[in-house]
């Protein structure tokens, strides 16, 4: 497989599986994916969300949840443009 083919294949796969990485993946991209996954996990598990909401003294769990989703977007580097 030529490098161009490999590159194309990788892009196709990456389009499908957003978190995909390879040797040229930058640290920023990788970190951005980790952050997004982490924030998503925190807001998706009801126990973790509650743990966080209580620890932050948040007035409502929904507020914490929205904050976490918004944080997923905070790192504005585009993970797809490698």
């Amino acid at each position: 497989m030529s490098e161009v083919q490999g590159q194309q294949r990788y892009q196709v796969l990456k389009h499908k599986y957003v978190g995909l990485g390879r040797e040229h993946t930058t640290q920023e991209e990788w970190l951005s994916n980790v952050h997004r996954d982490t924030y998503h996990s925190l807001q998706a598990h009801s126990g973790l969300l509650e743990y966080l909401a209580l620890a932050q003294g948040s007035s409502s769990k929904r507020q914490t949840k929205i904050q976490l989703i918004k944080k997923m977007d905070q790192n504005k580097s585009r993970p797809n443009e490698s």
Binding site: V18, A44, H45
Partner: peptide, 9 residues
């Protein structure tokens, strides 16, 4: 699993 791209949220 609970994934950010899974349309289950």
């Amino acid at each position: 699993g609970l994934r950010r791209l899974s349309p289950i949220s």
